[in-house]
Design a protein around this nucleic acid. Structure first.
Length: 361
DNA sequence: GAATCGTGGTT
DNA sequence: TAACCAAGATT
């Protein structure tokens, strides 16, 4: 792409941006803590979905020091429902690093920021430009799309070579434009005008120089080479009510989905079509849950949840347990499941919201 | 470098 | 409906 094309690009983009800019609660006086928090929350997340979480986090933890002193479970609970829970775990790790090792101050360079857990290339560039005025261009899903279309660039965006290629392109596009404004403008433009589908090409201020528009390849760009494959998993949750009316939860610890969230004791099978009796006879049945101390209750319908790479099919089996006094380790009791202080996967909260727990077994 | 990590909106 | 994708990062 000739330099003159990029000059047109950034000029028209910034002209569009000035009247159209989306107000963000963390903009204005840039507080590195709030910029960082918002950028972590917004990773792979729409603004509309992340905004309420940002507000709740700032209210609960106004400063990075406040966040650093929080309990792991409290942070997970506040993150509950937002997904990609490693973000919440890394959020706390990074906050503790800043509070304990960096005297409460965030690094003010791209490289320093990128060293924080959960802060990758995009987020480091975003914080560096928005909070510290550094001259670095962000590269996110919007930028890939806007650049690929304007340049008619059919290079794949995934993979490290694609990332390098488009980073170079957006660096050229930005030129010496103020990075914070340019970054905000190009992401807003991708979210509001140059959208994945139903792009606003007829009213687009860049249309007359847009190569994809000229070639009719707008919806063929950007190009990705790999597509994801999904697998199905079949979860049988044991909703165990003891003699005091409490329910048992355990924390997920394995390197798997929902790590560090809580759930009912789980038996994974290769079908949802199993009765409690069959589960009892399986290898996976917990030894502490003696069959002669339980009474079978209701079996739920099949709950389905789509994850990015898996389809979860979950069945909930209610069980009354005449419990021995001693509770196995790593379990927690909850009195009112619906008001648990522990973060739960969405599929379990949906089950609880359906109110079956309030019915008699 | 490829695969994986959630959830909700959109088409 | 099922696929795509959203202010990506990590292993």
């Amino acid at each position: 792409m000739p330099q003159t094309d990029w000059l047109f690009f950034r000029t028209a983009l910034l002209d569009w941006y000035e009247p159209e800019r989306r107000p963000m609660p963390w903009k204005g006086e840039p507080d590195p803590y709030r910029v960082w928090l918002s950028e972590i929350i917004l990773q792979q997340t729409r603004v509309a979905q992340g905004l309420p979480y940002f507000e709740r986090f700032v209210a609960a933890y106004p400063t990075v020091t406040d966040l650093a002193g929080a309990d792991d479970d409290a942070v997970l609970k506040l993150w509950e429902g937002l997904g990609y829970y490693s973000r919440a775990r890394n959020l706390l790790r990074a906050a503790r690093t800043v509070a304990n090792d960096l005297d409460g101050h965030f690094p003010d360079t791209y490289t320093g920021l990128k060293a924080l857990p959960g802060v990758g290339p995009y987020t480091a560039a975003a914080i560096a430009s928005f909070a510290f005025g550094r001259q670095v261009a962000v590269l996110d899903g919007n930028v890939y799309r806007v650049i690929a279309r304007f340049a008619g660039d059919e290079a794949p965006t995934d993979g490290s070579s694609g990332r390098k290629h488009f980073q170079q392109a957006v660096d050229q596009a930005m030129g010496d434009t103020h990075a914070a404004d340019f970054n905000q403008a190009i992401m807003d433009f991708g979210a509001l005008v140059c959208t994945p589908r139903n792009a606003a090409c007829p009213s687009c201020p860049l249309a007359k120089q847009c190569k994809a528009r000229a070639k009719g390849t707008v919806y063929d760009l950007p190009v990705k080479k790999k597509s994801i494959t999904k697998r199905s998993r079949y979860f049988h949750y044991l909703v165990i009510k003891d003699t005091k009316g409490s329910f048992l939860l355990q924390q997920r610890t394995t390197k798997d989905i929902w790590q560090s969230l809580y759930e009912f004791p789980l038996i994974e099978a290769d079908t949802t079509d199993l009765r409690l009796r069959q589960l009892m006879e399986s290898e996976a049945w917990p030894t502490w849950l003696e069959p002669n101390r339980i009474t079978e209750g209701k079996r739920s319908l099949v709950y389905r949840q789509q994850l990015s790479h898996q389809t979860i099919l979950a069945v909930f089996h209610q069980i009354e347990w005449r419990a021995p006094t001693k509770l196995p380790d790593r379990f927690v009791r909850i009195d009112r499941a619906a008001h648990s202080a522990y973060a739960l996967p969405r599929v379990i909260n949906r089950y609880l919201e359906d109110g079956t727990l309030t019915l008699d077994l």
